[in-house]
């Protein structure tokens, strides 16, 4: 059991929540991720930015082994969460994904009621002992996702009947309900209008207190607004990573500079 944050004995500083070393990803013949080394800090929001097809979503999907579901995808290298290799044969991806939740680009509520959407995760992971437990988890998760007030009177209506932004917050609530430690978000606002986007961004900021959040985004403004650290990907390479402020004001790499000033993208 490992309940204390892992401490690097020598440096006396907090070890990163997630650390990736020499990660390579292949899609069949395509080399999608090349030699990526990256540490992701606990309880911060880390944004992955970069042009389309740069591998940022692919890398994100390595962090909870969602790439396992794609037959032709192969991952090499070493990714550790709390110091444990998540690609170790002994690791069950099911348990891993309970610890590392994910929110997708398009809101994808299940064709079930709002309540059942949230309760789905806790049920399969056996997180509740009674109906009351489950009710509490659902209410809690919805509250944390800022959706509770809007839906509390219609929990048994289908989740697909909500608006786009509400659906996405439902998906976030659904992820929170399994009490993950890390939440991965793959362009969570790309299908939403600006008002809904603002609400989600606000929510991400609140969630930062309790969760490690990694967000892939196309929008540099969004990265600047919600994240503390930013990683820039280009053509499967991690170009640079650092404090968000640093990256946006004073990038070290030429390519980052070009990207954030809109010269390509």
């Amino acid at each position: 059991m490992n309940e204390m944050p892992v401490v690097d004995a020598e440096a006396g500083t907090l070890l990163p929540k997630i650390s990736a070393k020499k990660v390579q990803v292949f899609y069949g013949e395509t080399h999608a991720i090349k030699d990526v080394d990256l540490n992701i800090a606990d309880r911060t929001v880390t944004a992955f930015i970069g042009p389309s097809g740069c591998g940022k979503s692919t890398f994100l999907r390595c962090l909870n082994r969602m790439n396992d579901t794609i037959d032709i995808c192969r991952v090499e290298g070493d990714i550790r969460i709390d110091g444990e290799d998540i690609y170790d044969p002994k690791v069950d991806p099911v348990q891993l994904r309970a610890k590392v939740g994910m929110v997708f680009q398009k809101p994808n509520p299940f064709p079930k009621s709002i309540y059942d959407n949230i309760a789905y995760g806790p049920r399969i992971h056996g997180l509740s002992r009674s109906k009351a437990d489950l009710d509490e988890i659902v209410a809690n998760s919805l509250q944390k996702a800022g959706l509770y007030e809007e839906v509390k009177d219609r929990l048994d209506e289908p989740g697909t009947g909500l608006s786009g932004g509400q659906q996405q917050r439902l998906c976030i609530a659904r992820a929170i309900a399994v009490s993950p430690e890390v939440i991965l978000m793959d362009e969570p606002c790309s299908a939403l209008d600006p008002i809904a986007t603002a609400k989600i961004e606000e929510l991400i900021d609140e969630l930062r207190e309790n969760y490690t959040i990694v967000i892939v985004t196309h929008s540099m403004q969004q990265a600047a607004r919600v994240s503390q650290r930013t990683a820039f990907f280009h053509l499967g390479n991690l170009v640079e990573e650092g404090e968000t402020k640093e990256i946006f004001t004073n990038p070290t790499d030429r390519r980052t500079q070009d990207y954030i000033t809109g010269r390509f993208g």
Binding site: M102, F104, Y120, I124, A175
Partner: peptide, 8 residues
């Protein structure tokens, strides 16, 4: 994806 991402 939604379901697998939840650890189902």
């Amino acid at each position: 994806d939604g379901s697998l991402g939840l650890g189902a």
